[in-house]
Design a protein around this nucleic acid. Structure first.
Lengths: 218, 218
DNA sequence: TAAGTATTTTAGACATGTCTAAAATTATTA
DNA sequence: TAATAATTTTAGACATGTCTAAAATACTTA
């Protein structure tokens, strides 16, 4: 269908478009892909010929609807595979990126349909990023750090900011994982610590923990 | 690690070595890979430089220990993924080859270690072919058609010869799947039909069925 | 064993995607 | 706004893996 290089370029440009506004520059693409600007120019011209993006010399690139859909489908596959690796194969959240980077290029619609079903049609990947649906629609989501919530606000845990084994084990112990509902019961000004409700358990967490957990506000 | 083309050549040669004896000819490789003999010559020379096989002009190729191990690891991955697709994603046995053909090239030892464990370290793929172990050792197995067994012999179902939906549904109904133990209770000369024991159920099967089921004799 | 046939290799070309070095364009700032 | 700096593109080369056409070698058989 599409080559590996094509998919990687479209994916990179898709991400860059979400970080800034307007056209994406050659240099920005080169940097994010760890390649040279001259290579990017070549490739972007080819993608423009294939109507996957619009390109004007010296002005940068912008995905077309076609290009956007291809990129979203690759990202959907990436994130679904990450869920598989963490939920089923018990990888840690920080070990799965490179493997998903390969798995995202497997070509089979039926495979992804079945994988999605097998995983229970998850909405978020293990890093808390939303999974585009099969039409390439990405729910614009309010992903916040737990530390940004105020007293009495609720959120669903959707991921961690930086993951390390100790922190993940701490979360395990506290029975916090993706999908866990968290309610803020109290918040201290001076040190940013919180008291939160998880299930029926209420406990204290430090600022460090609150600043490392992503939640989806409810 | 190794390129896609390298892995595919080694795999094809590995299979051909098991079908005949001695060196594998350029033409045979070309035919099995649906490519041209001239392309094979080029590639085989490169693989010889990398010590993955031994090659003499006009005399064909033979895998070295190194090449054999790489090939076996690719085949191991292919067959483990096939088990995953059938057992976990509920694909039919005849739908999984093309997808496994892509998945077999994913590079990550840890992934395969975990996948193997997740699947319960299976010994056979859904077609009844043995899965090489992590050291590339392939159990030489006595895969036979059920029709070749005599009265009172036992076997474990390891796959089907030709699979079609109707036949797979028939097996489902009779509670026969990979790993199922089958005992031959009777065999008729004139039409090749059999009476077999599956679990606690004893029933009649036609020659057509007996000639389409692979078993591992016990 | 010589001639004809089949197999295999070589030579040269091509497609994809990358790179370096140099040229062109755009942006900055004095 | 002219000079300088930064960005971007072009030109030409290279690596991988493929192909066709032609040459070399091996196999068959009369």
């Amino acid at each position: 269908m599409y080559t590996l290089a094509e998919e990687n370029y479209l994916k990179a440009i898709f991400h860059l478009e979400h970080e800034t506004t307007g056209e994406v520059s050659t240099n920005a693409i080169a940097e994010s892909m760890e390649t040279k600007p001259s290579s990017v120019t070549d490739m972007v011209q080819k993608l423009a010929e294939k109507k996957m993006l619009v390109y004007k010399r010296y002005k940068g690139a912008q995905l077309t609807e076609k290009g956007r859909k291809i990129a979203a489908s690759v990202i959907r596959k990436h994130r679904l595979w990450e869920v598989f690796l963490v939920e089923k194969l018990k990888f840690h959240w920080d070990e799965v990126h490179d493997i998903a980077e390969q798995l995202e290029h497997i070509q089979s619609d039926e495979l992804i349909t079945r994988l999605d079903k097998f995983l229970g049609s998850p909405d978020f990947d293990p890093h808390g990023d939303p999974i585009p649906d099969k039409h390439g629609v990405l729910k614009r989501t309010e992903k916040k750090l737990l530390s940004e919530l105020e007293k009495n606000q609720k959120g669903v845990c959707v991921g961690v900011k930086e993951s390390n084994s100790d922190f993940l084990q701490y979360l395990d112990k506290k029975k916090i994982s993706i999908g866990t509902k968290i309610t803020v019961r109290g918040k201290e000004f001076f040190d940013g610590s919180m008291v939160i409700l998880v299930g029926k358990d209420q406990f204290f967490i430090s600022k460090m923990v609150a600043e490392n957990l992503f939640v989806q506000t409810l």
